[in-house]
Amino acid sequence: MGEAEGVETVTEATAADDEPTGLEDIEPEVPERTTFLDFLRSPIIELVLGSGADSTILNAHQALIVQSPFFAEACAQFSDGAVARRIELPNDDVAACASVLEYLYKSDYFPSLSGNQTMEHDPTVPSPDNDGVALLRHARVYTLAQRFGLPVLAGLAHKKIHLTQSTAKGEIAYARFVYKETSVDDENIRKPVAAFWATRSHVLRHEAEQEFKRMCLEYPQFGFDVLSLVLDAQEKRSHRQEAQSSAGQASGRKRQRVSGI
């Protein structure tokens, strides 16, 4: 009899424990953390750059490159059991694409930023850089970042462009690439190029006059953008001079005459 009562008491207690208390939703759900190891366990994607005998294959982990909407859409076409996972990029620059992958793996690419306003030294860049080697490297990364849907990388490449030392001829090579490869609406990268040349007429005359002339003939939009900025600056100067002249005349009328008495 006592045993039955004990069993009944235990059963009632168990039932009471199973009843909802209203506190079930208080405990927050801890999101599952994706580790770098998880990225490395994902399938390998082959990026084929170029074509034929000149093609180059770069390998990358799928879970990392799908940070790019461009690559995410391409990888969505692969079946779960697909062995060969290839993305063809026949017209893209190998070095620039490698820099994009480097960024996806470590959030920066060589030459990395060291501090907010300096970059590490790149021994492969000639000095003086008359061909714009360094500027063009970052410009190619910028255009790829735009196409791959990576705005943070595009901003990083743009910052590195402004931190890069070059020459007048190197700047013309960079300007030619920008006006050839970027959209007309991309003022973020085009306007600084035009502003550079609009404010450096002394450089044009002494260091790169012929290159600048060829650039204007090849890309009339470049010449128009530069001329527009020059005329805007001249108009502002004229307005300031007129304002100063008017202020001088007004103040002159208010001066008291010196009496000879």
Rank of each mutant, 00 (worst) to 15 (best):
G2C: 04
E3Y: 01
E3W: 02
E5H: 12
G6E: 14
G6H: 09
V7A: 15
E8R: 15
T11V: 11
T11D: 13
A15C: 00
E24C: 11
E27F: 06
T34G: 04
F36A: 03
L37D: 14
D38E: 14
F39T: 01
F39Q: 01
S42F: 08
L49T: 07
S51T: 15
A53W: 05
I57H: 11
A60E: 05
H61Y: 09
Q67F: 04
E73A: 15
A74Q: 15
A74H: 01
C75F: 04
A76D: 13
V83L: 10
V83I: 12
A84N: 09
A84E: 06
I87P: 00
E88R: 05
A96V: 06
C97P: 01
A98I: 06
V100L: 05
Y103N: 07
Y105I: 12
L113F: 02
Q117S: 06
M119D: 10
H121I: 15
T124W: 08
T124F: 12
V125M: 13
P126M: 01
S127L: 15
L135K: 07
L135G: 07
R137Y: 04
R137N: 14
H138M: 09
A139Q: 07
Y142N: 07
A145Y: 14
A145L: 11
F148T: 04
L150N: 05
L153E: 03
L153N: 11
G155W: 00
L156R: 06
A157K: 10
L163R: 01
T164Q: 08
G170W: 02
I172K: 00
Y174G: 05
A175P: 10
A175D: 12
V178S: 00
Y179K: 11
E187L: 15
N188A: 14
I189L: 04
I189T: 10
P192F: 12
V193R: 00
A194E: 08
A195N: 08
W197H: 05
V203E: 12
E207T: 03
R214C: 14
M215N: 06
Y219A: 08
G223F: 13
G223W: 05
F224D: 12
D225E: 12
L227A: 14
L227R: 12
V230I: 11
D232F: 02
S238P: 00
H239V: 04
H239G: 01
A243E: 13
Q244G: 07
S245Q: 05
S245D: 06
G248N: 05
A250V: 11
K254Q: 06
Q256L: 12
Q256V: 10
I261K: 13
